[in-house]
């Protein structure tokens, strides 16, 4: 249905490109997607540094982390990518923005660093970047792999590994006759850790009497009304981690 018109249309669009000598057919689309996500992640990461408004920083951070999730998907780590979207972007950052709203003294608060601080940080940052890039570019032996080795998705082996069984790879155990170790113990430690953190954060953030009076302006009073319900809402905002921990278990219940 309409294939011919579509072809001619795309031919019209693509003809100049082909004439310019760019071999479209030879383009590696994996690389193009990588370039897209990588530049998004990097640009918005720099945006986080440059922005002064906290909420804008959070927005840029969301975009940067979402693009990083895209990179995870491209690297074949679907589960980590989905995890990143769910926990980081959907949980942690919502929590952060929540914190921004609870602590906003005036609309669009911005606490700016001084120019000298900026210059110093820029200097230190660029030298750090140079060191890291030099280190990254020295890893030559891993360059130029092909996509030919298509391997199975990793979510199920990952879930099995978290339950203490390894089903991935050439199975180091196959040669020696022993099963490679999984991650059951770290998994349990992390789950207990999350529970402790949950209780601790709820305890820390509980509503109590303020020692110093606060500036009485419109925004602060708007916030203080909301603050009364902090005790209910903040612990409520925490559990996604434990919820996704159970989703982890499900990944391995094959």
């Amino acid at each position: 249905m309409g294939n011919e018109s579509m072809i001619s249309l795309s031919g019209m669009v693509m003809a100049p490109v082909l004439a310019a000598g760019l071999p479209l057919a030879a383009i590696n689309w994996h690389s193009v997607l990588f370039l897209l996500f990588a530049s998004l992640a990097s640009i918005f990461a720099v945006g986080v540094v440059l922005a002064d408004n906290v909420v804008r920083m959070a927005l840029y951070l969301v975009f940067s982390l979402a693009a990083t999730a895209g990179l995870f998907f491209l690297a074949g780590a679907e589960f980590i990518g989905a995890m990143q979207l769910m926990i980081y972007v959907g949980g942690t950052l919502v929590l952060l923005v929540f914190g921004v709203m609870l602590t906003a003294q005036a609309p669009f608060v911005s606490i700016k660093p001084s120019a000298a601080d900026r210059a110093l940080a820029g200097l230190a940052g660029s030298s750090l970047l140079v060191v890291l890039l030099a280190a990254a570019l020295s890893v030559d032996s891993w360059q130029r792999p092909g996509l030919s080795e298509v391997t199975a998705p990793t979510a199920t082996p990952l879930g099995m590994a978290l339950l203490g069984m390894r089903v991935d790879g050439p199975a180091a155990g196959a040669a020696t006759g022993a099963v490679a170790n999984g991650y059951l113990l770290p998994f349990e430690i992390v789950s207990i850790h999350l529970l402790v953190v949950l209780v601790g954060a709820a305890y820390l953030a509980r509503a109590k009497r303020r020692r110093t009076p606060r500036p009485i302006d419109a925004a602060a009073s708007a916030v203080s009304v909301v603050e009364g319900s902090t005790r209910v809402e903040l612990p409520a905002a925490l559990p996604p981690r434990s919820g996704s921990a159970s989703a982890l278990v499900s990944g391995g219940s094959k």
């Binding site: 959907g90 905002a237 996604p240 919820g243």
Partner: peptide, 14 residues
């Protein structure tokens, strides 16, 4: 909305 959606993700996930 933030409080509600983030909390309801827990039972939804379960």
């Amino acid at each position: 909305e933030a409080a509600q959606v983030v909390s309801y993700e827990v039972p939804l996930g379960m």
